Amino acid sequence: MPRAAALALLLASATACANDVPEANLERGLLPGHITTQAGVVQSLWNGAWIAALATGFVVIALIVWACIFHTKRKAKAELPPQVRYNLPIEMLYTLVPLVMVSVFFFFTARDSEVLTAESKNPDVTVKVEAFQWSWRFTTTVQGKQTTPVTGLPVSDYHQGPQLVLPVKKKVRFELNSDDVIHSFWVPEMLFKRDIIPGIPKDSPGRFFEVDTLDRPGVYAGRCAELCGVDHSRMLFSVKLVPQDEFDRYLASNQAGSAQ
Rank of each mutant, 00 (worst) to 15 (best):
V60N: 00
L96V: 14
Y220R: 00
S120I: 10
H183R: 04
P81E: 11
L251A: 09
Y220K: 01
A221M: 13
P98E: 01
K171A: 06
A16R: 05
D203N: 12
D180R: 03
D248W: 01
L26Y: 08
F108N: 10
Q244G: 03
A5Y: 05
E175W: 09
L116M: 14
K73W: 01
P188S: 05
W46D: 09
G29C: 03
L9D: 14
V168M: 04
D215V: 06
L93D: 04
A24T: 08
P89S: 06
N25F: 10
E189H: 12
G40Y: 04
Q163G: 07
I197V: 14
P32H: 11
I90P: 01
R194Y: 02
E246T: 10
Y94F: 15
R234F: 01
A24Y: 11
R111S: 12
S258I: 11
A225D: 10
A8L: 15
T140R: 12
I51G: 02
P243M: 08
D180C: 00
P167Y: 11
V142A: 03
V211M: 06
E175S: 11
P167G: 06
F107A: 15
P243A: 11
P188L: 06
R3P: 01
K170G: 06
T126S: 13
V142Q: 05
V125M: 05
T109N: 10
S253D: 15
M1P: 13
R249H: 07
L26I: 13
D215W: 14
I61K: 01
M1Y: 12
V239Y: 00
Q255T: 14
Q83Y: 08
V59K: 02
D157H: 08
V142F: 00
V41G: 09
S13Q: 10
R223D: 12
K170A: 14
V172M: 03
N177C: 00
K128P: 01
W136V: 02
C228Y: 00
K240I: 04
T147S: 07
E114G: 14
V115S: 04
Q143K: 13
